[in-house]
Design a protein around this nucleic acid. Structure first.
Lengths: 355, 355
DNA sequence: AGTCTAGGCCGAATCGATTCGATCGGCGAT
DNA sequence: ATCGCCGATCGAATCGATTCGGCCTAGACT
């Protein structure tokens, strides 16, 4: 084993030294039971002598059946989530929402890869989890949680199950944004979407791709756009990032003869990439190309005030955290749907009349 | 208990149904032992029938002595850490560094408040922890970890113990920045520091405050500045935030007759606050006041290109994660010290010659 | 053909604490 | 004075899995 095989003292050792039974010693620590002040002090003194650091959380949680940990399932590498301001805001909100529990936040990813020693969703000592983001693997994850009997709440995920969902008006919001573009006079609009499937397939919006979609957010936002522009096509990005937006937009704008006058991006980061691509090609935003984002974050380094659909990310996280608290206290949790607002910045304008 | 008292199946149930012993069933799951393919399949089938979701992580970690979780101790509320870009970058690096473990990342705070059910540093099922940031409570925390026998690595914390430390050249870097200010011609320089003590005392840099300092980072950076400007004084902020920088700078610039020509802020966020305060007072940066930051992050909304000491935050986190991996595999971990570089932006200039 | 070997499986101890039910004085009430 | 009750404490079962040592049997080697 470990080189420092010097056995750490256990509650039994402490009890023995204090001359009380193990059960009494336990009571002295947890405080959940009648113990005389004198005895308690004696136990604490013995613990101090022995360098006992308090009950082992592993044993405690085995016995109690609760670990005091809430899992947060991110759909991607932790690193990627940290780079996404929306995720950070949600995490922030979640941490605020579960504060009354005093529980820790365990970051997990939904990649499906489970190493030998790895802590995955299938095997993490959590009392509840919050599913963050529209992960394509949602179904599998939920099934695993159900089997383990772990309560869950989803943020932006069409679970189709009995787990509460915290969402926003993806379809209506996008429709509102699209409508704004139409009012400005746009008719030729392209879309850069979030990933649709588990493989995060990048490329044109083929019918197969859409039909195989497991990502509700991307589908809903697309549907909202198509209620206004039924013919609109575009490309799916491999993630919500500036880089992916750049790549998708390069493809959409490749042919100078045949460019849309506006691009609807399903996230602000994608929108930032789109703008970058347009400027690379010598186009001006919004004169030559209007760009609509989604999220309402500030994109670092972006010189524009993005026209976008601002969603209350922190509030979503907080609501999810509160739902967790409710579930753990036995109350039936409620789903909630928040509303996004259209922020008009300087990346949208009347289209330049085509020649 | 829980309303869903329908007992979840245990390994024993699975074993019984498969007609094998519990030990064999365990082997079938963990794969660490000789089990015939047929038996293994039978066990797995039984598990599937019963809806068994795999070994309970709580029991497993009690027996194995490892939880597969690495704790990250933040010196403040999780929320605050999420708002600090430096922290996020470090988290990012840590997650990258511990990737080979496949371990989860548990976010913990070092506030010392331990509620009834709360998971604190004293009682979290972690295999190791990374102490992030220069928490004034470091000593107490480390003592608790030592008693529990949990290996730790500190980022920016003078532990004075045998735990490895990942740091940067705080003193030398600040001296370099201060030297640059002196070369520009500044002689009257004030300093806005990070908190020195557990109470995060805000206010003038009194001798008592400095002597009671438990925060190495603040002390080192101050020492570096004073090697160039021995007489420099200033104020301690209550945290690394724009708000705190604003408040400290308001005090330092309160008297129009007696203003420094430059302010050294111990973080970029503080520097942003300083700039804001100066502009509030009608001063121009850098014409009326030079401002030097520390960190090298991009501060959202800041219109300046801050002159600052850029530190490799991600690399620090990654190094810490790697050190954790080493410690858990028994190797003696090594401390590392990274180097910061002076980035000259547009917030520093030759001082306006005093009347 | 006899013995040795090793794979495959089982029993039981163990990890460290929590908690239910029982025991035992001592004290207030009748 | 006695009954009953309550607070303090103890014993022992329990949480759910891992793992060490031992046993059995079939195949291999001489």
């Amino acid at each position: 084993m470990q080189p420092d095989a010097a056995q750490r003292p256990t509650l039994a050792d402490v009890a023995a030294r204090a001359g009380v039974s193990q059960s009494t010693a336990s009571l002295a620590f947890s405080g959940s039971g009648p113990v005389s002040a004198a005895t308690k002090e004696r136990v604490l003194a013995a613990a101090s002598d022995l360098g006992y650091a308090g009950p082992d959380p592993r044993a405690r949680s085995l016995r109690r059946g609760r670990s005091g940990i809430v899992g947060v399932v991110l759909e991607e590498r932790v690193r990627a989530a940290f780079l996404d301001p929306v995720k950070i805001q949600m995490l922030d909100g979640i941490s605020e929402g579960i504060a009354p529990l005093g529980a820790g936040l365990l970051l997990l990813t939904d990649t499906g890869e489970a190493g030998e020693n790895a802590v995955s969703i299938e095997s993490a000592p959590v009392d509840a989890v919050v599913l963050v983001g529209c992960s394509p693997r949602l179904g599998v994850t939920i099934e695993a949680l159900r089997r383990r009997g772990i309560p869950a709440v989803a943020i932006e995920g069409d679970t189709g199950e009995d787990i509460p969902e915290i969402s926003i008006d993806n379809l209506q919001a996008t429709r509102r944004g699209a409508e704004y573009l139409r009012q400005l006079g746009h008719t030729d609009v392209a879309i850069v979407t979030l990933p649709f499937d588990a493989a995060r397939t990048r490329g044109p919006l083929t019918r197969e791709l859409l039909e195989s979609s497991t990502a509700a957010t991307a589908s809903q936002r697309l549907a909202g756009a198509r209620e206004i522009f039924p013919e609109a096509t575009g490309r799916a990005a491999g993630a919500s990032s500036i880089e992916e937006g750049l790549e998708a937009a390069r493809a959409l704008l490749a042919d100078p003869e045949n460019r849309p006058t506006a691009i609807i991006a399903q996230s602000d980061l994608l929108a930032a990439g789109v703008i970058q691509a347009a400027e690379e090609l010598g186009m001006q935003v919004p004169a030559d190309l209007s760009v609509l984002g989604f999220d309402g974050i500030r994109v670092d380094g972006l010189q524009h005030d993005l026209t976008t659909l601002a969603q209350p990310s922190v509030a979503k996280g907080r609501a999810a955290g509160e739902a967790v608290v409710q579930m753990l206290s036995g109350e039936p949790p409620a789903s909630r749907c928040f509303t996004s607002t259209l922020h008009v910045g300087d990346t949208t304008a009347v289209p330049r009349t085509a020649g």
